[in-house]
């Protein structure tokens, strides 16, 4: 349950959290050792032309006191100016959005499918806990998780893409994009293998939580009550057990959805799918602060939004949680 005043206050807190995030991000990034121009110049030249470094510092205002830079940064953010990438000279926001769009092609279906399948499998497995089918699935998941994700990804590429040639090795699309333009089906075809892999990793993660949660729920008295009413097993599972077992999943899954913004570096690397994850690591390596600030800003927004969403969702699922005057 949720009331309007509370929601307003809650949004106010979220705003405060956002300001703190922005501040922390700014100072952590700016106090991080190393800077872009030194990295860049030393990567292309065997000596460091100091005058070029100074010129860069001056152009980007990095020679001013940190607090002054912070004030300018906050003013710019408030006006919607996210700044320009040091590396590319391009405005940060469209750059992030472009990479994010590519990332979402894989991440959105993978996360949603991963959550849904993980919940269903975990619920089913927990419901049947101790049974042969449950143990088979449980042990499979243990083995699946015990082997590093990278290995599975490489094997999947090797078997399905290289040996069987069912899927492409990687990339966003076939080379035909150069002659006939972007074909959504082709992008989908390129995305299937990474989506499947990422989905199975997310499934494996959610499966455990859901299974444990379900095992805890099936011992509850109200499950016996439901059976005593004459409900069949499926109705007991889906109507009575699932909703209760979902409660611990709410926070976890909303944050998974929010985590989309950070991308998945290893999927992007293995499948040559340069999205937001590689953009972040690359910007971090090169100390491209405006890009990092933009990504973390977006991440803070998503996380704070996710927290709000998780609370609202939880209060809808569990009437005992009352958001507001208690």
């Amino acid at each position: 349950m949720i009331d309007g005043h509370y929601l307003l206050r809650r949004i106010g807190y979220s705003g405060a959290a956002f300001v703190i995030c922005v501040t922390l991000t700014f100072f952590i990034l700016h106090l991080m050792p190393g800077d872009y121009i030194t990295n860049y110049l030393l990567s292309i030249s065997n000596y460091l032309p100091q005058e070029a470094v100074d010129q860069f510092y001056q152009q980007y205002g990095l020679d001013r006191p940190l607090w002054e830079q912070y004030v300018i940064y906050v003013c710019n953010i408030l006006q919607g100016h996210w700044g320009y990438s040091y590396q590319y000279g391009l405005p940060v926001f469209p750059m992030i959005m472009q990479k994010l769009t590519w990332s979402l092609v894989i991440l959105l279906p993978a996360v949603l499918l991963g959550i849904a399948i993980g919940i269903v499998l975990g619920a089913w497995s927990g419901w049947k806990s101790g049974g042969k089918k449950d143990l088979a699935l449980f042990n499979f998941m243990i083995v699946f998780r015990a082997i590093p994700e990278f290995w599975w990804a490489i094997m999947a590429v090797w078997v399905f893409a290289f040996s069987l040639q069912w899927f492409p090795l990687g990339g966003f699309t076939s080379i035909s994009v150069l002659s006939s333009g972007l074909n959504p089906w082709d992008v989908l075809y390129h995305a299937i293998l990474p989506i499947c892999l990422l989905t199975s990793f997310i499934v494996a993660g959610n499966y455990y939580v859901m299974r444990n949660s379900m095992i805890a729920v099936i011992g509850e008295d109200y499950i016996t009550t439901a059976r005593a009413k004459g409900l069949d097993e499926r109705a007991v599972l889906w109507r009575h057990a699932l909703k209760n077992a979902l409660l611990p999943m709410v926070t976890m899954t909303t944050f998974q959805v929010a985590g989309i913004i950070m991308g998945s570096v290893f999927i992007e690397t293995v499948f040559s799918w340069p999205g937001i994850g590689l953009l972040t690591t690359d910007a971090l390596r090169m100390r491209d602060l405006p890009i990092l600030e933009g990504i973390f800003l977006l991440d803070a927004l998503m996380t704070i939004g996710a927290m709000l969403a998780a609370d609202i969702l939880a209060s809808h699922l569990d009437p005992r949680i009352r958001m507001g005057d208690q």
């Binding site: 509850e220 008295d221 109200y222 016996t224 009550t225 439901a226 005593a228 009575h240 909703k243 209760n244 409660l247 699922l317 569990d318 009437p319 005992r320």
Partner: peptide, 11 residues
């Protein structure tokens, strides 16, 4: 059933 606090489904 006994224990009315836990035999009703809370959700």
């Amino acid at each position: 059933s006994q224990n009315s606090a836990s035999v009703l489904n809370p959700v």
